[in-house]
Write a protein that binds this DNA or RNA. Sequence first.
DNA 1: ACAACAAATGAATAATGATTCACTTATTTT
DNA 2: AAAATAAGTGAATCATTATTCATTTGTTGT
Lengths: 210, 210
Amino acid sequence: MAYRETEKMRNRKAQARQHILDCAYRCVIEGGFRSAQITHVAKAAEVATGTIYRHFESKEELFAEIFRTATQREVNKVAEALATVDSAVIRLEAALRQFAERALRGPTMAWSLIAEPVDPRVEAERLLYRKAYAEHFEQAIRDGIEEGSIPPQNARQSSTCLVGAIAESLVGPLSPTQADGEREPDPDQQSELVESIVCFCIQGLTGIRR
Amino acid sequence: MAYRETEKMRNRKAQARQHILDCAYRCVIEGGFRSAQITHVAKAAEVATGTIYRHFESKEELFAEIFRTATQREVNKVAEALATVDSAVIRLEAALRQFAERALRGPTMAWSLIAEPVDPRVEAERLLYRKAYAEHFEQAIRDGIEEGSIPPQNARQSSTCLVGAIAESLVGPLSPTQADGEREPDPDQQSELVESIVCFCIQGLTGIRR
DNA sequence: ACAACAAATGAATAATGATTCACTTATTTT
DNA sequence: AAAATAAGTGAATCATTATTCATTTGTTGT
């Protein structure tokens, strides 16, 4: 025998894999999943199309992984905002803000994660992550009910409503048909948007007018 | 010259067109837009594939029309519920109920209209109709603000939140991955679902606990 | 240097489905 | 009945992309 898999090679392989992921990620940032074809990704990563299949089972697998990574980052941010020592209502408010503001700051990716039509395999990830968001919210709502700052209610259902309300509110502003070429920030309008969403949601939870 | 288009032929043509629409509609009811390929539709309508292109510009055009018709029906139902003489809050509540209950009664079509991944041309219709729902809600919210039953707020934004909250709440229960084979009604669970949605939404609007 | 194996390549292939078009059939008018 | 025109047909074509695989290039141990 002559060739034995070595540490150096294992590293190099992992690095190549990561490089492909990074480039594919950049493709999605630039034009959504739609425009991120294997050929593009291969070109961006400066490898042959076949190489991608050495590292990933299929296109869907590759993009599912990207979706997972990107959304996990967002879920973590929301979880972070919910992890302070404040009252549940304050924490939920912060989390909703975080969600909306981050989306508006990275609109293409946010749109891809929230609303872009994607392959079934990737859509499955999306459903999973919507559930993940909802679960974080749900826990906070339960906390609020326990501490008395939120009236008793179906926490599961309410959390789903939160996710829906915020996502729907963002679809318009993020949609590429809406403001494709130049997605100007217009900070005033954006912060009013965020305020209205938060206001509706907190009121929906607590019944307390602000 | 010899052939002149006649009333009889115009009727027959319109009828053929409608027949194709009906059959395509039935295909969508049965398996969503995904499984409604031109070949299937042609087979269902007992015409050749080419015939379909005599009546419709393209596949997307055909399905956009179906989407439009189906959603318009739903929008009308919501509009109807909003058109009574009751107070705005009562009317909004009835409309939300109507929306949710109808969706749960026709789950495949509802899922196709609300959440199924579709072609861009059809997706455009979806966005349009989401806006249509929101506009009806918006008007009712304005009425409520005027009559004093709903506190002042950004009616446009709140209406979007309503649409998002209700749609998201239904995606899970309607999703074919969730309960594909047999979508049992389980009326108890469904009515609890509807109650929670309505409760959250009305509270989000009014700030009044129920 | 060479044997043994792994990784990379990218043109060729495959798969999917919408769309076309040369041809057949039906309808109307003279 | 025959000319003129429209509607219908469906096998063949086209377009788009993901995926494969025979071949080349790179790495390791003796």
